[in-house]
């Protein structure tokens, strides 16, 4: 009993550096960020760190650019994630057979996910730039005059959407494949004997069995959907006319381009609340499902 207690103490000391360092790295920034959001601090005007209460939040309410960034954020949380889920599921189904070829293809399909997001943005910027022989050349082959993608609000939104789908569909595929490989083979065999066709197999056996994993994957994707910040930065810089300005990009612009650190901190507090609320909502939905 005594030895056990001593051992516990030793392990606690192994834990201590992690707890201290990680605590300092996460709790202090969160508090500091909240404090900054209550000041009108501007990097160009030193001495403007005085406390002003909720002023930033009040001016946010009448900031149309903030409301726009909120809408754009929702657009980029829900639309790309939906497409990623569908594409990733279809890819996983097609590559499920364990053949030599499929193994190589699976590895190749992971490339978009593992390369630096900056390069994902760069790649799609190249493809969407007219005259560089990208997408517009192939559109012309089927006699469509391609637009100047990145310089029009609507098409710029689609361009960023494409890049986001390209980058993260492999993630969905990877996790769903892992789930499909762990499916009980008895259910499939029994179904085959009963003369179930392939479509029915997917609809009534595969889909219900991997549903729990799909929900987790969906959750991960939603939580990380605003991680497309580097794509926006490289491809459109939030433009044209703020059409692709997600809320974390707006916070970046406020803080490090306009130097309004206080206002940026309050935007981030809102972002934090948004992500937290979304996570909470989905996690409790999952918990209810069991």
């Amino acid at each position: 009993m005594k030895i056990k207690a001593r051992e516990q103490r030793i392990y606690f000391f192994w834990l201590l550096p992690f707890l201290i360092i990680f605590g300092v790295l996460t709790i202090i920034p969160a508090l500091l960020n909240f404090y900054l959001s209550l000041t009108p601090w501007n990097l160009i005007r030193p001495g403007s760190q005085k406390f002003v209460g909720l002023c930033n939040y009040i001016s946010m309410a009448s900031d149309s650019r903030f409301w726009n960034s909120l809408w754009v954020s929702f657009y980029y949380i829900f639309i790309p994630v939906t497409i990623q889920m569908i594409l990733g599921f279809l890819w996983a189904l097609a590559l499920r057979p364990r053949l030599k070829g499929t193994q190589v293809i699976r590895t190749l399909l992971l490339i978009p996910m593992v390369i630096p997001p900056v390069i994902v943005g760069l790649t799609w910027k190249v493809l969407f730039t007219p005259n560089l022989g990208g997408i517009n050349y192939y559109l012309k082959m089927i006699s469509i005059q391609g637009p100047d993608w990145l310089n029009r609000p609507f098409t710029a939104q689609i361009a960023v959407l494409m890049a986001a789908v390209w980058e993260w569909s492999p993630f969905v595929m990877l996790l769903l494949l892992a789930a499909m490989e762990n499916l009980p083979s008895e259910a499939m065999e029994a179904a085959t004997i009963d003369g179930v066709n392939k479509l029915q197999m997917v609809r009534f056996i595969v889909l219900p069995l991997i549903k729990p994993v799909m929900i987790i994957v969906l959750l991960f994707r939603i939580m990380d959907a605003l991680g497309i910040l580097p794509l926006v930065f490289v491809m459109t810089k939030g433009g044209p006319a703020s059409a692709t300005e997600i809320i974390n990009f707006y916070a970046y612009m406020s803080g490090f381009v306009y130097y309004k650190i206080g206002y940026a901190a309050s935007l981030i507090t809102v972002l934090f609340a948004l992500v937290f609320a979304l996570n909470w909502y989905f996690l409790s939905a999952v918990a209810k499902q069991g």
């Binding site: 202090i28 920034p29 650190i261 901190a265």
Partner: peptide
């Protein structure tokens, strides 16, 4: 503590950038 570890990982990196920049 374990959930806190995961929860912080799920936040957008932007949440930490401004306080880190200032400190």
């Amino acid at each position: 503590i374990i959930s806190w570890t995961l929860a912080t990982r799920m936040l957008p990196a932007m949440v930490y950038v401004i306080p880190y920049f200032v400190s």
